[in-house]
Amino acid sequence: MSNTTASRTNILARLREPQRPECGFDERDYLSRFDWDRAERVRRFTERMVAVRAEVHQATADTWLDVVKQVCAAKGLKNLLVSPETERGKQIHAQAEHFPALKTYDRPIEGWKEELFYGVDAAFTSTFGGIAETGTLILMPDAEEPRLMSLVPPVHIAVLEVDKLYTTFAEAVQEQGWVKTGMPSNALLVSGPSKSADIEQTLAYGVHGPKELVVILV
């Protein structure tokens, strides 16, 4: 391998050599704010999500489990990957007989990569929050709900608590204190199913990630 330490020294020296460029602008800290109430945030979020072909279902603390069941049934899912550790995951696992065969991400990927890549129909995850302006889910994958859950299976079902729906990304970062708490290994913004417009500007869904994204608002 080449000597990257020497390169580091050289590059930094070159950057320090010229007279320090001035920034010259002080408009950096402006924060867009929208005065949207809860209903407006839900409306905007839903509108954006639907515009990119995500499914959005409204539910309550009592009905969300039934909505997940209905979604699974409607899509004819043969199996569903759900964490047995998260609060909602526990509830699903407690009623396993009403769901397609439940699978769990209970070992490192190396132990079941083939099954995850080729044998899982759908995954259910929680979310860390949402963004109304752009119709976005915030995911912070962890040991219970690892990164690939929201990426590899063709269908991703996610629950978003409306209390965690912010107006903008900037607001979410600030109010959830991302910097203070420190960034997780991987944080994600997901705004719809995987798509591409690389062929003749025509949208096609499900390129590498899920073809379908189902959001259940609670």
């Binding site: 752009t134 976005t136 960034m183 290994s185 991987n186 994600l188 913004l189 997901v190 705004s191 990630g209």
Partner: peptide, 12 residues
Amino acid sequence: PITTYVNMISSP
């Protein structure tokens, strides 16, 4: 308004 994915990686 935003891309489908914004992927923020902070560690292995």
